[in-house]
Design a protein around this nucleic acid. Structure first.
Length: 324
DNA sequence: ATGGTTTTTACTGCGTC
DNA sequence: GACGCGGTAAAAACCAT
């Protein structure tokens, strides 16, 4: 990033040198018809443009010699700027104003000139960063949109996610984390706040970010923005699981009842909401005599069968305890 | 880093179709 | 014999400190 500042434009004298070289070869005339000769550099031939006579083959390439063997050669032979890169929003082609108060010939600037340059630097920096943040935001919002629709999340969740992302951006949380990661975290938080939670696993499958990085940046974002994200309510997973398993409305109602009953008894605390929801759905299916296997539930909920077993026992206990 | 808790993995036994 | 279910032990993951 910082090395782009050291590149300067080509010195005028060199450019002229190159051009005069070309002209010299063109001005030679053909020995046969005295038409003008043209060098075909690709094939290394010199050809008459009128009669087609090949005057010279296997010519030495008089093109620029790029190799440099010492510092002064390096200086005189470097002609262009930095290679472009996709990693910067402007491919590294934006204007940079050197920090040295020297002109193109290395002479020091007068104090008034120096002041002028300082002002230019300031403003250039302002525009450049503003611009990059804008692009950053654009990309992130596109990403949020993509993931949200992949997960079937409603409009208001995307809105919230965007707001969270903008806040993260304005609080300078981005440096050091990926745009993707922060965008995904914003979406995850937004989904939970909106009461339509998606599990970390679900989010991770549509995101380009690994789950580990995601949890890290999510924690970070929540902490820095002091977002209030309550633990997800298991009940909110129920309808989705139930419909994925083609269960009746009745059993999904049952499942919610089980969860409410067990919440009173403090079964919820410390347990994964997804696991509880999955177990409740399974238990409810048993109670309404609908056939669902544990492995099916574990499939749609992405939770192990063991966890389902443990939870649903507890849920049923809580239910019977309430009856008494 | 550590310890406590929860979840997962892997394996086993039981009953049923 | 395959399948669904239940249990257990050990490993792994998670979380607060």
């Amino acid at each position: 990033m910082s090395d782009t500042t050291t590149y300067t434009t080509t010195k005028p004298s060199e450019r002229e040198q190159d051009r005069t070289d070309e002209k010299q070869t063109e001005s030679v005339t053909c020995p046969e018809c005295s038409g003008s000769l043209v060098t075909d550099e690709e094939h290394g031939e010199t050809v008459c443009s009128d009669c087609g006579l090949v005057v010279e083959t296997d010519e030495i390439d008089h093109g620029p010699e790029w190799r440099a063997f010492n510092a002064s050669e390096r200086d005189s032979k470097s002609r262009v700027g930095a290679p472009t890169t996709q990693m910067m929003h402007d491919k590294g082609l934006s204007t940079n104003i050197g920090w040295q108060n020297k002109d193109a010939y290395g002479k020091s600037l007068s104090s008034s000139q120096r002041e002028k340059m300082q002002r230019l630097r300031t403003w250039n920096e302002r525009f450049r960063t503003r611009d990059s943040k804008e692009r950053n935001l654009k990309q992130a919002l596109g990403e949020i949109d993509r993931m949200a629709s992949a997960l079937g999340l409603p409009e208001n969740v995307r809105e919230t996610a965007s707001v969270i992302y903008r806040r993260a951006l304005s609080e300078d949380l981005l440096p050091g984390r990926s745009i993707e990661g922060v965008a995904t975290s914003a979406l995850y938080a937004a989904a939970r706040q909106a009461g339509t939670p998606r599990s970390l696993d679900e989010i991770a499958t549509v995101s380009r970010v690994e789950k580990m990085e995601l949890t890290r940046t999510y924690r970070y974002v929540v902490r820095e923005l002091k977002l209030e994200v309550k633990p997800a309510d298991p009940e909110q997973y129920v309808p989705r699981f139930a419909s994925d398993l083609n269960l009746s409305e009745e059993s999904s109602r049952q499942a919610r009842e089980l969860l409410q009953a067990s919440r009173e008894r403090g079964v919820h605390s410390g347990k994964s909401p997804v696991g509880l929801a999955a177990a409740a759905v399974y238990a409810a299916a048993l109670l309404t005599n609908e056939t669902v296997t544990q492995s099916e539930v574990s499939e749609v909920a992405n939770i192990s069968e063991v966890t389902i077993r443990n939870r649903y026992k507890e849920l049923l206990e809580a239910k019977t305890a309430e009856a008494n």
